[in-house]
Design a protein around this nucleic acid. Structure first.
Length: 771
DNA sequence: GAACCATAGCTTTTT
DNA sequence: GCTATGGTTC
């Protein structure tokens, strides 16, 4: 396969470039991933060993995709290119080299932000600091910021000026000490320790600089100080550094990303070349014009204008809802409409919002209407109690000095070890400079702890024997078998099974899924499928990595998570002053510009059709608040956007109503919107016209016709349902109708799906067919 | 030591 | 409006 096939001139130049620093300024949708992939393929084609290439992406998912694409292009050698995120790279690097620090041991564990917050809280408590003034969150983020700027506790203390900062410096120091004692690294440490090791150890540095002859970094605009330094160190020998990014899409300033890293690349590497990719292949002219118009309002930016040869496309729709429930209803209506009339697959639509809190109302609507969806973030799988408990068990087995994890499970399930006993144990351990595990693993030491009841002593000895048994068992078992073993032998499963509460049932489900995750890991990992690598992978997995977007589901996620993705139809919800841009950014011009970039990212995710919605009032913290429409809406030229409102009752203004009543009977028209953007050359001028046209020309045809072809199941109003009928649902499989209520448009069905309970469905929305 | 109830605090965005 | 936490009670 020809590597240069289908590339434009600028893209070709970028791919052809081999030696020396290169900056690729790649606008949204300009084929950046394609260029990077082709570049890797081209390096390999030029005889560069896969072993000599390091490519850094923003998510694990992007890394996997890029690897697969490169393998398809050039074959097996691409398999062994070192391709990962900054954090995974560091974790792997440290797994080999960390003992050179003389501080950490090879079996270190990685703490996520939850674990790290637990440690911060312990520190605050120990230092008797007021949690009102020093909130765990603010302290944690201050420490994190310091780390991202490569400042250790001492450096931070030196730079501290306010009382708050000086105290935080103390907390930082204690926090770092605790992590070291637990042989644990937090996310920021992965970078920090890797950089420190490379800086201090010449032998290691030499070895890795020698090895990585070519370094490629994606999303360079979102690198922070530590990542910048790491990149610089690794590329220092060969200077074959290629960075790709778009300053207009820098949206992670709040977590230490420094836009100057990309702005100043040419200063850092004076011999560098710069290539601009400005042709957009993703969006319609309308969408691109809107994006350009919005981003132009930023003062601090280099001028750039994306252009496209794609069709003009339809206008953007701005819908003014009465409240967040009306907003959700409108969006669901449009999604069903897009799906039923235009045959847009659910998987081709996404809803983007600024804050996770907005997802709840939307989610409820999806459930009520039976439309399949997948949510990125929110209630995270790995944040669930039972999963964290299991991970804590695994971590203790892997690294027993991890006291945070040990404390988490020592009395889970209940072993009669309460706060009092544990307090005594911890006090004793601290006094004698032992880890908690040191104490409980020795009967003599347990005996020596003052004030322990006989019952507690007994329980502790049993527990420590149990942990030792697990450590032995682990050595000969696969990860998934070991997890199952822990679940059984700890009594964790038994405790959940003892009571048939619905939450217990879902916990058991989740734990089963966790075993599945381990099985999957054993099958797919490129490293040894051992506990060590499993724990690393689990710690560094992100929401976007684990989201299942292949399936036929609408995706719900924050604007931040959406970076790098694209969808034919996009909804941006909550376009209100105070929500987006968020209140906390209104005072700071820099932060406001970042909000605008976030908006730019959102708009440019859309390929064909973009909806933006805002609500007159919205429930926040249980109180109704009213917001003005977002300034970003006003920045979009009138020609690009059609504004409709829930309040106006004339003509097509009352679209909500229309949407709810009439669309299910239209036959899907693939040509209208289903094809490639570039093929829709004469699109109607406005959505109103589309609808008008639909009224006149689309014949009334039962949607069921689609089912015959084996396509997705669509709502069908012509079917008469009665109790006892068997119904096939797109997601839940086959069920039995248990009740039918209402008539006409309002037919409401209750259907029992085996193993999934009774679901309430509106016939006009439900993707069901008679069996 | 555990179960229950009240209340505060929360919401920016995440590896 | 929800949830995580802390206090109170048995």
């Amino acid at each position: 396969m020809d590597i240069f096939n289908g590339l434009n001139t600028a893209q070709k130049t970028a791919v052809e470039h081999i030696d020396g620093p290169l900056l690729i300024m790649a606008g949204a949708g300009s084929g950046k991933t394609k260029v990077l992939t082709c570049k890797i393929a081209n390096l390999l084609a030029h005889g560069v060993a896969p072993y000599n290439i390091l490519a850094i992406t923003f998510t694990n998912k992007a890394a996997t995709e890029m690897r697969e694409r490169a393998v398809r292009m050039i074959g097996a050698p691409a398999q062994s290119v070192w391709l990962s995120t900054f954090h995974s790279f560091c974790a792997r690097f440290l797994r080999y080299e960390i003992e050179h620090t003389g501080i950490y041991k090879k079996n270190f564990v990685i703490y996520d932000s939850g674990d790290s917050q637990t440690v911060v809280k312990i520190c605050l408590k120990e230092m008797n600091l007021d949690e009102k003034q020093f909130t765990p969150n603010s302290v944690q983020s201050a420490i994190s910021n310091a780390k991202n700027m490569l400042m250790g506790p001492r450096a931070f203390e030196r730079s501290a000026s306010t009382f708050f900062e000086k105290k935080v410096a103390e907390v930082y120091s204690l926090y770092a000490q605790k992590l070291r004692a637990n042989n644990a690294l937090d996310f920021d440490d992965l970078l920090l320790v890797a950089v420190a090791l490379l800086e201090e150890n010449e032998e290691v540095r030499e070895r890795y600089q020698q090895r990585f002859r070519y370094v490629l970094v994606d999303e360079y605009q979102d690198t922070n100080g530590a990542q910048y330094q790491l990149t610089k160190l690794l590329a220092a020998k060969h200077h074959n550094l290629c960075v790709v990014g778009d300053a207009d899409q820098s949206i992670y300033g709040w977590r230490g990303a420094d836009i100057r890293n990309i702005m100043d690349f040419e200063k850092d590497y004076p011999e560098s070349h710069t290539i601009k990719l400005e042709q957009n292949y993703r969006s319609t002219k309308t969408i691109l014009a809107a994006a350009n118009a919005v981003i132009e309002n930023n003062e601090n930016r280099k001028p750039k204008k994306l252009w496209t040869e794609n069709a003009t496309g339809e206008q953007i729709i701005s819908y003014f809802a009465t409240d967040e429930r009306d907003e959700a209803r409108y969006i669901l209506g449009e999604i069903t409409r897009q799906n039923t009339i235009y045959n847009v697959l659910y998987g081709d639509m996404a809803i983007l919002y600024r804050t996770n809190a907005q997802s709840r109302v939307l989610e409820e609507s999806f459930m009520r209407e039976g439309v399949p969806y997948t949510m990125v973030g929110g209630l995270k799988f790995y944040d669930r109690k039972e999963i964290r408990d299991m991970i804590a068990y695994l971590r203790v087995v892997f690294n027993p000095v991890d006291t945070v994890s040990l404390m988490r499970i020592i009395n889970v399930p209940k072993r009669g070890l309460g706060d009092t006993s544990l307090g005594r144990l911890n006090a004793y351990a601290a006094q004698n400079e032992l880890s908690l595990f040191d104490v409980i693993s020795s009967p003599d030491l347990i005996e020596a702890v003052p004030g322990l009841s006989a019952r507690a002593r007994n329980a502790l000895e049993k527990f420590s024997v149990f942990i030792f048994e697990l450590i032995t068992a682990q050595e000969t078992m696969t990860v998934h078998a070991f997890i199952e073993h822990v679940l059984q032998s700890s009594g964790y499963m038994a405790e959940l099974e003892s009571e048939e509460k619905p939450e217990n049932i879902s916990r058991i489900e989740n734990l089963k899924e966790f075993v599945g995750v381990a099985k999957d890991f054993e099958k797919t990992t490129e490293d040894e499928p051992n506990l060590e690598n499993f724990l690393s992978q689990v710690a560094l997995i992100s929401d976007i990595d684990s989201a299942d977007m292949e399936e036929e589901r609408v995706t719900l996620m924050t604007l931040h998570s959406a970076k790098g993705l694209e969808f034919p139809v996009v909804f941006m919800a909550g376009m209100e002053e105070g929500l987006f841009p968020h209140v906390r950014t209104l005072m700071e011009p820099d932060q406001l510009e970042e909000e605008r970039r976030t908006c730019y990212v959102g708009i440019t995710r859309a390929q064909r059709k973009l909806y933006m919605t805002h609500a007159r009032m919205r429930m926040i913290f249980g109180h109704t608040t009213s917001y003005l429409p977002s300034r970003f809406l006003k920045e979009i030229p009138d020609a690009c956007i059609e504004r409709i409102s829930a309040d106006s009752n004339e003509g097509f203004g009352s679209r909500t109503n229309f949407g709810r009543q009439e669309y299910t009977n239209f036959r899907p028209s693939k040509r209208q919107m289903g094809g490639d953007v570039s093929q829709t050359n004469t699109p109607p001028k406005s959505a109103a016209e589309v609808l008008g046209a639909m009224h006149r020309t689309v014949p009334q045809q039962p949607a069921a016709a689609v089912n015959m072809a084996g396509g997705p199941i669509r709502p069908d109003m012509d079917v008469k349902w009665s109790v006892g009928d068997k119904a096939k649902h797109g997601k839940w499989g086959i069920g039995t109708v248990v009740s039918v209520k209402g008539s006409g448009e309002e037919v409401e069905l209750k259907i029992a799906f085996p193993g999934q309970g009774v679901k309430g469905l509106m016939q006009k929305y439900a993707p069901i067919a008679k069996v």
